[in-house]
């Protein structure tokens, strides 16, 4: 089943002579439960694509249909709900909320949605993330790998259909990187969650079932492993 379809997506910055094309006529679709890695050099537009998919940036033209709904036309309010319920984001610099501890960070999207936190599920997730003895710590007391696990936990906790990860291992050493990707893959297999992961690390990309390569804002290769 198709969960996501991108049609003729373009994103430009600047005006007239100074125009920069970040994305140019990008089209692809993703199936439910697919694990896609997007690779490309710096400035190829991969982060821009992911941000647009996550609803924190708007395309200049084109459509993004998620679950049959065009998200490029949503209001800010609807986009906030979209991010809470449909597509969750994981960033390179984790972007945890510094005043909240591990548990609070993980449950934040659910609480923003005014839903009750499922304690059993939280416990299980924290255990899988290997953060059981760190759950009351603040982000500045955690290592980079631990912080990224919290960020992933936050994305997984709300059981969104799609997990969008922007260079989740970009700031980690190789051991931590492998662990993080393993975690994501496990979840992908176990819960059939669709994952789109941006990386410039080919080893990380190889874990995905499909690799899309971007170059100067265009898809130059799209291969299934």
């Amino acid at each position: 089943m198709e969960i996501l379809r991108v049609e003729n997506l373009s994103k430009t910055y600047g005006e007239n002579d100074n125009i920069t094309k970040a994305l140019e006529d990008v089209s692809f679709s993703a199936q439910d439960g697919e694990f896609i890695a997007i690779i490309g050099a710096s400035g190829s537009g991969k982060s821009t694509l992911l941000h647009i998919l996550g609803g924190i940036d708007k395309p200049s033209s084109g459509r993004i249909i998620v679950n049959g709904q065009d998200i490029s036309n949503l209001s800010d309010r609807e986009l906030a709900v979209y991010r809470r319920r449909t597509a969750s984001l994981v960033f390179q610099f984790y972007n945890l909320i510094p005043i909240l501890n591990v548990k609070e960070n993980i449950t934040l999207p659910i609480r923003l949605d005014n839903k009750k936190v499922d304690d059993r599920k939280l416990e299980e997730l924290v255990k899988i993330l290997g953060l059981t003895d760190k759950q009351n710590k603040l982000p500045n007391q955690l290592s980079g790998g631990e912080q990224q696990r919290v960020a992933i936990g936050r994305a997984l906790m709300c059981e969104t259909k799609i997990l969008l990860a922007d260079e989740p291992t970009g700031n980690l050493d190789s051991k931590n990187s492998i662990e993080i990707v393993k975690l994501i893959k496990e979840y992908n297999e176990k819960y059939n969650q669709t994952i789109i992961l941006v990386t410039h690390d080919i080893e990380v990309a190889k874990q995905a079932g499909r690799i899309i390569t971007l170059q100067d804002g265009k898809i130059v290769r799209d291969e299934v492993q």
Binding site: I56, R77, A80, V81, S88, L89, N95, L96
Partner: peptide, 16 residues
Amino acid sequence: RNEFAELKAIGMSQKQ
């Protein structure tokens, strides 16, 4: 402003 962007990214609305 960073934090607000992050909060928005994980689904906090401007109203919230």
